[in-house]
Amino acid sequence: MALTIDKRPAVKSAPPGSPHSLGRLARLKRDWGLLVFAVPGLLVFLVFHYVPLLGNVIAFKDYQPYLGVRQSPWVGFSNFALIFSGDPEVLNALKNTLVLTVLQVAFVFPAPIVLALVLNSLMYEPIKRFVQSVLYMPHFLSWVIVVAIFQQILGNAGLLNTYLRHKGIEPIEIIGNPDAFRALITSQVIWKDTGWGTILFLAALSRVDQEQYEAASVDGAGPARQMWHVTLPALRPLIILLGILRLGDSLSVGFEQILLQQGAGTEVTEVLDTYVYHHAFQQGEWGISAAVGLVKGVVGLALVLGANKVAHLFGEDGVYRSR
């Protein structure tokens, strides 16, 4: 395909925030080639993300698989009644979800930033690469494996406790202990995905203009001040972008990971996703599950839009900006 593209890269056609100089038609004429390229991706989105959204209709039905979506009777908002009437099970799942979200925002989210900064300060390239590779590895393990590894090491009959028992020391109950559950879940996420999470930050760090550091050090800034005034500002847009996206997911806190470890009792382990799973797949309450899932999705969307707005107020681009 022959493409004639304007000298300026099309995507950068308008500087952020400035009004467009070209009309809609003119832009279409200029960008059509790129739009053609976008079509397959859009189709994937349409087919696998937007069309399935229509399935949410079962939140308003008494859905029975053998009747199918069309034949199942409408029940209006009665599936939502459970959520808004303060059903203790739903509230408990919501509470657990929020607690885990807060923990993850507080501990999981900053972990890759810190690690990226540490890695970035490693000077000797081979060591840096080696450390990076080792840290990426856990990301490729499935949750089943990760949970099994934790079980083998920290479980009540695992490495640690078997050792303690042989030494005649009281074993420490970590797995299956509701008090330790949240810490366990959070540390598993950190162990598994922190390394992987550094990739984006390292890329951003590598783009920081070295002259800025030189200039800063000429001005007498030590390492701490350089970090504060050069490195972190360079990372800010990325941190904000990822932060907003994380908010959208805030009500999803690791379905498989938690489902595999509900031995600690549902009082602390049941989250919205596992609630939906249990009620739909195991108990056949498809309508109620879909309603809970739908509310969860709407809240997530509202959070993303809201956070994006806030980012704009602070003069950041956020996830996107309408022109």
Binding site: Q64, P65, Y66, G68, V69, F281, Q282, Q283, G284, W286
Partner: peptide, 28 residues
């Protein structure tokens, strides 16, 4: 199995379907 059965039931059934313990058996 429990995840897959509803999908099978919502479409055209195979000739033999092994059903273990699912809600609304009589109606289905």
């Amino acid at each position: 199995y429990a995840d897959k059965l509803p999908t099978v039931l919502s479409g055209e059934l195979p000739d033999f379907t092994m059903i273990v313990n699912t809600p609304n058996m009589p109606q289905l």
